Simulated scan of single mutants.
Amino acid sequence: MRWCAAAVLMIALVGCSGGGEVPVPAPDTPAALPAPGTQVLSSDKAQALQNAINQIVEFPDSPSGARGATAAVVTDHWTWSGAVGTDSQGRPLRADTSMAVASITKTFIAAEVMLLAGKGKLNLELPLSRYVPHRLTANDATVRQFLSMTAAVPDYQPSGFARLDEASAAAPEKHWTLAQSLDFVGGHLGEPGQAYVYSNPGYVLLGMLIEKLTGLPLAAALRRDLATPAGLRHAAFQDGEKPQPPVAVDSDKACGPPDGYLPCRAFASLSAAPGGLAADAPTIARWGYQLYGGRVIPADLVDQMTTSEGEYGLGTMLFTQQFGLGEAFGHRGDMPDHTSLLIVVPAKRVAIALLLTNGGRSIDPRMADLTNALAPLLG
């Protein structure tokens, strides 16, 4: 991750302490972005962004369409958010409607692990088994390999997902621990460090690592160390926290009637570490700006998260130039009723979140529509 700090940021950091030399970062030291802007984008400029998301509901059954969408943009000067369409129950969406953002949760898990490493609480190069003994850590893959999904831990297989659905349907109100969610993992461990293999169970194990080292439930640790410092007021780490209204109601058949969680408490707790976060688009955009802007964990740690020879760093997807604004970082998320995408372009000092009220959608083209409309506004 590479960007230049504004002179005004350095002045703000030094303040009026009086005299002395202004400290200058080492040439290779990443610097944090300025604080996110607070001014709301003027309505005449905002219309182009609203038009971009309005297209999503024109053909809701198309691969990249949806019944509803919310979006938000955060820059160093201004913010914007918008909504269109409805949730699965036909209720109109608001820009602050919470949805399940699924694997965007992994950015929080990775950031917390990196923060703990930066504080000397763990060593990224040691096997995770040193901290979390488990059959799925028995191949001695390192903490860093778990973060980068090169630990050779199998993902849930279709049969495992089916059993997860059955467990949710049998007791939608049940709370499952992180360790219990791993009972649904089949397959065999491979040789770590060989290849990237997407693994939700790997992030469950990292969630267990966080609980062990902090002595807190996962939701409490993420709230204390990340959400509160980042100023996130409308994020819920399920099922330790319940989504704040308004909430886009799910229609997941495995969950029965809505219970305030997304899609229900059982499913939310089973996916807590790899995908349990519920939030609105402005919150996700702000989180992306604060995280990848080096404002919530040290920028040198963020640099490690966003450095990779492939398309996945540490809890971070690397989007290179595919959205037209420059080198971008973030994550996709997919739940049965919601599809989400967060991208951050540090060089442009901008973070963008897009949430759809249908699962399994091709969201990248819709994000490209939004970034095309956004580009002229960034200067």
Rank of each mutant, 00 (worst) to 15 (best):
M1Q: 13
A6C: 05
M10W: 10
L13G: 02
G19S: 13
V22W: 08
A26C: 02
P30N: 11
A32H: 03
Q39F: 01
Q39N: 02
S43Q: 15
K45L: 14
Q50P: 04
N51E: 14
N54R: 09
V57R: 10
S62A: 15
S62K: 11
G65S: 09
V74R: 10
D76M: 05
W78Q: 14
A83R: 11
D87C: 03
T97R: 04
M99D: 00
I104M: 14
I104P: 00
L115H: 04
K121H: 06
E125Q: 14
R130P: 00
R130G: 00
V132G: 07
A138K: 02
Q145P: 04
S159E: 15
R163T: 13
L164W: 11
A169H: 13
K174W: 03
A179Q: 14
Q180T: 08
G187D: 08
Y196I: 09
L206W: 01
L209T: 06
I210W: 02
L218P: 07
A220F: 01
R224M: 02
P229L: 12
G231P: 11
K242I: 10
P243W: 00
P243M: 01
P245Y: 06
P246F: 03
V247A: 00
P258D: 05
D259K: 14
D259I: 12
D259N: 11
S271T: 15
S271H: 08
A273F: 00
G276C: 10
L277K: 04
A279P: 06
D280T: 08
A285H: 06
W287I: 04
Y289F: 15
Q290I: 09
Y292A: 05
Y292P: 05
L301K: 09
E309F: 06
E309W: 00
G315C: 13
T316K: 07
T320M: 02
G330Q: 03
G333N: 05
D334N: 15
D337W: 04
S340C: 12
L341N: 11
I343T: 10
V344D: 13
V345I: 15
P346H: 04
K348P: 02
V350W: 11
A353F: 06
T357M: 10
G360I: 11
R361P: 01
R361N: 06
R366F: 00
L370N: 11
A373N: 13
